[in-house]
Simulated assay, not measured.
Amino acid sequence: MTFHNEDALNAAETAIEEGLAAEALEILAACDRDDPERALLATLAFIDIGQLADAGRELHVARAGLAADDALLHWVEAELALAEWRIEDARGFLERLVADEANVTALERLALCLDLAEDFEGADRLLARAHTLDPKDAPLPPRLSAEEFDAVVDEVLRNLPRAFKGALENTRIVIEPMPFAALVLPSDPGLTPPDILGLFTGSSQLERSDEDLELPPAIYLFQRNLERFSRDTLDLREQIRITLYHEIAHRLGFEEEGVDAMGLG
């Protein structure tokens, strides 16, 4: 398929919005390499697929062609900083955007930064501002107490398919408000985005051996990310179930492709 440059940029932007980052990169490959708009879109696409070094190179191209105060540049800078777990840098970019003109997306991402800093009250204030701006598309996250969240997890565990129950032997279920830096692999932070809903750590059942001296495997659920991802309490309960099943599938040894094939992506 052949695009004119503007058409290609629009098509790539649509692909990114639809979660088709690889397709977006194919489209952008035909564009002018020095075009800063192309570079910004490529940065976002590489962030989406976890290739942060490539994202950084594309962002360098974008910086060379845009004014330092460009709002879209600040947005993409913030997204890469978040993906690399440079939370304070991301917060700085987003605070500038919100100060210039508050919008729902910037407020929500800034709230994520505050959540990661354990400023939960500050995060909730920002989410309330976003809701005021757009009540339909920025609903207030459903909130559960720690006890209520535990009860939902317990219910999901009781109703697990038999094939999954064995995967939980010697596997800890850990509920945290948010992910934290100690869970992030320094050599590849893209594997653990700050808005991740759940995480499996340790060896899968296919990898373990009698000589495996690692800490017991663990499944983490991140309560505030799950709440932010959900539209209401019913949806939250479903997202907890899906996320728990997804991480149990990793415990069984499935990679992302296999998890997606099981309908748990």
Rank of each mutant, 00 (worst) to 15 (best):
E6R: 12
T14H: 10
G19K: 10
L25R: 12
L25C: 10
I27A: 04
D35F: 07
R38P: 12
A39T: 05
L44F: 03
D48L: 03
I49L: 09
Q51M: 09
D54N: 03
D54M: 01
L59A: 02
L59N: 01
V61D: 05
A62V: 01
A62Y: 00
R63Q: 14
G65V: 12
D69Q: 13
D70Y: 05
A71T: 14
W75I: 02
A90S: 08
R91H: 08
E95H: 03
R96N: 12
N103H: 10
A106Q: 06
R109F: 03
L110R: 09
D119Y: 02
G122V: 07
P142Y: 03
R143S: 13
L144K: 13
A146T: 11
E148L: 06
A151M: 06
V156R: 03
V156G: 02
N159S: 08
R172H: 14
I173V: 15
V174W: 06
I175P: 01
E176A: 14
E176H: 05
A181D: 00
T192R: 13
L206Y: 06
L213W: 02
L215A: 14
P217W: 09
F222A: 04
L226D: 13
E227S: 13
R228K: 10
L236E: 15
R237H: 15
R237M: 12
I240L: 09
I240P: 05
T243Q: 14
L244R: 11
G258V: 04
V259R: 02
M262T: 05
